[in-house]
Amino acid sequence: MLLSLAACSRSEVFRHEAFVFGTRVDVAVYGKDQAEADAAAAAVLREFDRLHRAYHAWEPSELTALNAAIARGEAAEVSDELAALLKDAQHIAAVGDELFDPALGALVALWGFHTDTFVPTRPDPDKLQALLAARPRMADLVIEGNRVESRNPAVQIDLGGYAKGYALDRAAAILREKGVANALINIGGNVMALGRKGDQPWRVGIQHPREPAPIATLPLYDGEAVGTSGDYQRFFELDGERYAHLLDPRTGQPARGTQSLTILITAQPNAGTLSDGPSKPAYLAGDQWREHTRRFGIEHVLRITEDGSVEVTRALRARLQFVGSVAPKLID
């Protein structure tokens, strides 16, 4: 009986999976009590579902209601949460020279990415040029308390490149409220760690953009988050060419020059949010990626170029364990 009781008291990883935000999510709780782990993870998944429904970019939601009001040239009253999200996304867009701009929802729709089962097609050239000429930007939004309006009716908000990071921060807050000290939250490759996995830190892999395996692994410590922007998750191929969902607002075309770019955010407030939005301008900047990560104070970065070359900052190289024979170029 003593041996049996000892076995029951061992800590283990309790995993909980779902499909939200158009991707697979995984909440892994390390502990001894499965009932407590299940309850905490269930609360997180309910929150993910709430966020998904509230801020969906094309199904009826608070966000689509705001977009409809903007298209009509009207102001809208939004929730405290959405007002705060829009202000933060506006700031991230400004710091990143508007390379990543959630106001470009109409551009995303033109490329057919506002559907779960898109058909490979290029956008109508005239509609694309008209939208580029309209130049919708987050800077067009006027946010006063809960009142939101736009100086530009072409603005259509899509928080798809931002919401997963915010959801990581919400998940971490809920788990801590539920007394969970050790967990790993994964939302389609955006990952945040709480505590440890026993006597070891959590270890995560960085996906190789062209192979079904990680290119490297790294330990993730309490409160840290990692996020990747890449051309290998939402994309289609047409006439032998790859078209990814990360669109360059300067050209209206899918960004070129980078297969994937990963950033590690050390423990700090809103680490989850910072692991998502700020990776986009660096990805879209191509060879100027380092300038953009510096703007956000991000020192841990790995980039895989269009030709498959690997570039990594010295700070992140010290944390990485590469898989196979990789000879990265070190960047200060």
Rank of each mutant, 00 (worst) to 15 (best):
residue 115 T to C: 01
residue 116 D to R: 14
residue 117 T to I: 08
residue 118 F to M: 01
residue 119 V to Q: 14
residue 120 P to W: 12
residue 122 R to S: 02
residue 125 P to S: 13
residue 127 K to D: 12
residue 127 K to N: 09
residue 132 L to H: 11
residue 133 A to N: 09
residue 134 A to M: 12
residue 135 R to E: 15
residue 136 P to C: 01
residue 136 P to R: 04
residue 137 R to T: 15
residue 139 A to V: 07
residue 139 A to K: 09
residue 139 A to Y: 05
residue 140 D to P: 10
residue 142 V to I: 11
residue 143 I to H: 02
residue 145 G to M: 03
residue 147 R to N: 06
residue 147 R to I: 07
residue 147 R to G: 02
residue 150 S to Y: 04
residue 151 R to C: 01
residue 153 P to G: 04
residue 156 Q to G: 10
residue 157 I to K: 09
residue 158 D to Y: 05
residue 163 A to G: 14
residue 165 G to Y: 12
residue 165 G to K: 08
residue 165 G to T: 11
residue 166 Y to Q: 12
residue 166 Y to S: 10
residue 167 A to K: 08
residue 168 L to C: 13
residue 168 L to H: 13
residue 170 R to G: 13
residue 170 R to S: 15
residue 176 R to T: 14
residue 177 E to M: 11
residue 178 K to M: 06
residue 179 G to L: 15
residue 180 V to W: 14
residue 181 A to H: 15
residue 182 N to T: 04
residue 184 L to Q: 09
residue 185 I to D: 12
residue 186 N to T: 01
residue 187 I to M: 09
residue 188 G to N: 07
residue 188 G to A: 07
residue 191 V to C: 00
residue 197 K to N: 12
residue 197 K to A: 05
residue 197 K to T: 00
residue 198 G to I: 13
residue 199 D to S: 11
residue 199 D to V: 10
residue 200 Q to C: 00
residue 202 W to N: 03
residue 202 W to V: 02
residue 204 V to A: 05
residue 205 G to H: 08
residue 207 Q to P: 00
residue 208 H to K: 14
residue 211 E to A: 13
residue 211 E to C: 01
residue 213 A to V: 09
residue 215 I to W: 03
residue 216 A to W: 08
residue 218 L to K: 06
residue 219 P to F: 03
residue 222 D to M: 05
residue 229 S to Q: 05
residue 233 Q to S: 03
residue 233 Q to V: 13
residue 233 Q to L: 09
residue 233 Q to F: 05
residue 234 R to D: 02
residue 235 F to T: 02
residue 237 E to Q: 15
residue 237 E to Y: 11
residue 237 E to V: 15
residue 239 D to R: 10
residue 240 G to N: 10
residue 243 Y to D: 04
residue 243 Y to E: 09
residue 244 A to D: 04
residue 247 L to M: 03
residue 249 P to M: 05
residue 250 R to M: 03
residue 250 R to Q: 12
residue 251 T to E: 02
residue 252 G to K: 04
residue 254 P to W: 02
residue 255 A to D: 02
residue 261 L to K: 03
